[in-house]
């Protein structure tokens, strides 16, 4: 809803105030990112002088290189790069597989309904809202039994299992609005379960695939709880490495290196968000508001 007032000189002032307020908020939201970025390009000497709002007097790339390749995390001084690749190794299979599960589940739960389909959906859905503390202890044991404790494979399994709820929710809500007539017509033509899915639904699933992939990518990339609980040392994902770098470094704190490392951890999700933010918002809406 928008108010439709004719623009006159008297109504100019409220508009100016409105824009001023919006811009102040935008500045507040951008401030931490700005400070992170400028700090990461400053020398330590310049940081110690104060004024974190100022642009670097002497731009330097050293903190970025150090964060990537030579900062000490725990006992290893190889920077954050290895952990960054751990996260990539985790995020790709976890996203693809959980999205596949979600697509098939959503398809069955909307187009091949059976008695009790709502209960099954409810059971799956509740899984995405549990506080994960409730599964940490048994999961640690099960990963041990499966011999995938402290591996990225173990984390992939964890992320698939606890990602199914959201991916199922997204695909179910999307397929719910897909016309049943098309499905029925295809069935009369003799098309089976998989033919209908791959020929009719999947080609029309572009938007929801984008939403699901963005959602899962963000969640898995940003995960910290599972990473810190089930991995350690060189198998940790980037978020855990970042926290170790920032919060357990001894001696002089290299704030510029910390900020550069934080930027490395932030860039993948920021890029995804800026490139596909429209779908991200739409996905959040269809997922959370409409249940």
């Amino acid at each position: 809803m928008s108010t439709t007032a004719p623009i006159s000189r008297a109504s100019m002032w409220p508009r100016i105030v409105l824009y001023a307020v919006l811009i102040v908020f935008a500045a507040l939201f951008l401030m931490p990112l700005y400070v992170m970025l400028t700090t990461s390009f400053k020398t330590l000497a310049e940081i110690q002088q104060g004024n974190m709002l100022a642009l670097p007097e002497q731009w330097t790339l050293t903190p970025w290189l150090e964060a990537w390749g030579s900062a000490c995390i725990g006992l290893d001084c190889d920077g954050i790069s290895g952990y960054f690749f751990n996260s990539i190794k985790i995020v790709i299979p976890a996203v693809v597989i959980s999205a596949l599960f979600g697509a098939f589940n959503g398809y069955v739960l909307t187009k091949w309904r059976f008695r009790g389909h709502k209960i099954v959906f409810g059971l799956i859905l509740f899984g995405c809202f549990i506080p994960f503390q409730i599964i940490l202890l048994p999961m640690a044991r099960v990963l041990g039994v499966l011999h995938i404790a402290n591996t990225t494979t173990g984390l992939v399994l964890v992320h698939i299992v606890y990602g199914i709820g959201f991916t199922t929710l997204f695909f179910r809500n999307y397929y719910e609005t897909f016309p049943n007539e098309l499905i029925r017509a295809a069935m009369l033509d003799g098309a089976g379960f998989f033919t209908i899915f791959f020929r009719i639904l999947l080609p029309a699933s572009g938007p929801i695939i984008v939403v699901t992939v963005i959602w899962q990518f963000t969640n898995v990339w940003n995960d910290f709880l599972f990473g810190v609980s089930f991995t350690s040392g060189e198998n940790a994902p980037v978020t855990v490495a970042l926290n170790n770098l920032v919060n357990s470094s001894t001696g002089v704190k290299a704030y510029n290196v910390n900020m550069a490392a934080a930027m490395f951890a932030a860039v993948p999700t920021l890029v995804v968000y800026v490139l596909a933010g429209k779908y991200f918002v739409r996905g959040l809406m269809s997922g959370s508001v409409k249940g």
Partner: peptide, 15 residues
């Protein structure tokens, strides 16, 4: 206004 939502809490906390 929305971009912070894309960040990890660890990044937010660090910043």
């Amino acid at each position: 206004y929305l971009y912070p939502m894309a960040l990890s809490f660890i990044v937010t906390g660090t910043a």
